[in-house]
Simulated assay, not measured.
Amino acid sequence: MAIDLDKVLDKAWADKPLAEVLAAPVAALKGVTDKDGELLQEAFGVKTVADFGQLKYARWAQALVALNQTTK
C-alpha cells in the first residue's frame, strides 16, 4: 500500500525515516494537534504514532468500516 506522506504527516515529519515517525508524538500526523495528543494520552495512553496505529478501538472501528464495505 502506497501512502503519500505529505498528505498524512506534518511537513516537519514527511522526510523522516519511518522508525522516527512511528516514535513521534501523534501530533506528527497532519490535522492532529498537541492538545489532541494530550487527550489521546489521557484517554487511551497513546503517546506515539505507533501507539495510535495499534489502538484497539481504532482497529475495531476500521474492521467495522471494512465489514460495512463488503455488505454494500
Rank of each mutant, 00 (worst) to 15 (best):
M1V: 10
L55H: 13
D51K: 03
E20V: 05
D36G: 04
A63I: 09
G37S: 06
E20T: 09
V32Q: 00
G45Q: 07
N68G: 12
V8S: 02
L18D: 04
V49D: 04
V49N: 06
Y57H: 09
V32S: 00
Q62P: 00
T33L: 05
M1N: 11
G45I: 03
V65A: 14
A28P: 06
Q54H: 10
R59A: 11
D36V: 05
G37M: 04
L5C: 10
A43H: 11
D51P: 06
L55N: 15
W13R: 01
V26Q: 00
E42M: 14
T70Y: 10
G31N: 10
T70H: 06
K56Q: 10
V32T: 02
L5M: 13
Q69F: 08
V8L: 06
A23N: 15
A66D: 14
L40G: 01
A24K: 12
K7H: 12
Q54F: 07
A66C: 05
K11G: 05
W60Q: 03
K72W: 14
V46H: 06
D6Y: 07
A63R: 15
V26L: 02
A27Q: 12
M1I: 08
K16C: 02
L40P: 01
L18Y: 06
W13K: 03
M1D: 07
V32P: 00
A61S: 10
V26Y: 00
A24R: 13
L39G: 01
G53Q: 13
P17V: 05
L5K: 08
A58S: 04
V26S: 05
A14L: 04
D51Q: 04
Q62V: 12
K56N: 13
D4T: 07
G37N: 01
Q41M: 09
Q54I: 01
G31K: 06
A2G: 03
W13H: 13
A27M: 09
L39R: 13
